[in-house]
Write a protein that binds this DNA or RNA. Structure first.
Lengths: 130, 130, 130, 130
DNA sequence: GTGGTCTAGACCACA
DNA sequence: GTGGTCTAGACCACG
């Protein structure tokens, strides 16, 4: 089954970032495999009903960060080599994301345990998507 | 101990939203109690080294969402009645936040278990802050 | 005909609140329809001769209250789903507004019947505006 | 029965104005009669739990507008002569108040008929208060 | 001294 | 060109 993107227009997260993150998620969790081809910019723009430039921006960031390779006239493919991430940056990013996440679930009166359950549920759903 | 705000200037989350979220976090987790007075707009602006209007914007959103009451000339106080959150909105919000969170940690090649551990650690740290 | 805003600079009601209320009035009375686009922040600022930030504040409150959706870089649109209002809050708000209104017309020595007539007249005028 | 004030701390209407309006309402609707004595500033401040200056400000505005007379050391009394209101100001004020009222009830998704009913109900309640 | 409103203007993020 | 954030600073309303 083809990789499925889903854009949320009320999350506040910009479209281009949602796309970038979803591709990386797919790679890290082996839903997208090295060499696999992504939809063309034009195709994805039609599918997701967003501006072509938005898709282009996403692919360009993915390329820059080494997650995909673009071959002129052929398409965009998941990179063979795993992109490396600076461990210090990773640790700082992790704390920052977690801290923000706790604030945000609190803003909905959600306890951590409840969020844990939902995180696991969504993860399972995504695994089955492959 | 007084409630402690902390702004992260590199998280990408706007100052005013960090403040809003932290107040709600404090309320939901009973660190801030009904009737308790928040710092004055001017005081907090000095403490956090941001513009007065930024704080005012935060307080104003909190008021609009029912988390605090403002009496002009007197101050800003934690609301007596617990602000209610529409359960449907809550469920949708939870899924959205979790989904975004999974994408974001994946973008750092972080496994869910690792994130869980960090979430718990931060939560414990905050509890000790009270 | 496009939706028409009008600001009263002597009513004591702040500009941003007049704008918020007028948009909601338009939505509730089906003058503004779901999906319809509001004027851009900049355009409305020019039309109404007020600062851009004042309009932004209005739109931001409308977004927070669920009456409009904003997509950065695209515009501001009337929300699809009708924003729900807590019936208890609604009842309390109604009593509060009516009570204040009675006080205020009394302060002008106006009898209730006279006010009723004027309310109906203004309502009819607005309907014709559509 | 003594005239009863009631302050709403969440209406956004400042205390001093609520007091002024309620007194005028009482006069216009003959609940308060010429020569009748109002509570002392000190007494009312205690009763309503507000700052003494707030009551003083209310009484001072009432005096300025001719609705009450203050006699040093004796007290504050409802004025004998009816305070006059400029008919042009009255008409303009009426339109402004009605217009704002329509916007505000719309903001709660309340239809005009519903508001009319509540207005009548409150009026009747107040009459019985005398 | 408290919060509220508004302006002017800058810079950024997004489509 | 769209909206979002933030600063600086002024003036007002309230208690």
């Amino acid at each position: 089954m083809a990789f499925k993107f889903s854009l949320n227009n009320s999350s506040g997260v910009p479209y281009y970032r949602q796309i970038v993150n979803q591709v990386i998620y797919g790679i890290v969790n082996a839903i997208l495999e090295p060499g696999e081809r992504l939809p063309t910019v034009r195709q994805l723009a039609v599918d997701l009903q967003v501006n072509l430039n938005t898709i282009a921006k996403s692919y360009s960031e993915l390329e820059l960060r080494g997650f995909v390779n673009t071959q002129q006239g052929t398409g965009t493919f998941i990179s063979d080599k795993k992109a490396t991430i600076d461990p210090i940056e990773k640790e700082k990013g992790l704390r920052r994301l977690c801290s923000t996440f706790l604030d945000e679930i609190a803003a909905l009166s959600i306890k951590t345990e409840e969020a844990f359950a939902t995180l696991k549920k969504i993860e399972k759903e995504r695994k089955n998507q492959k």
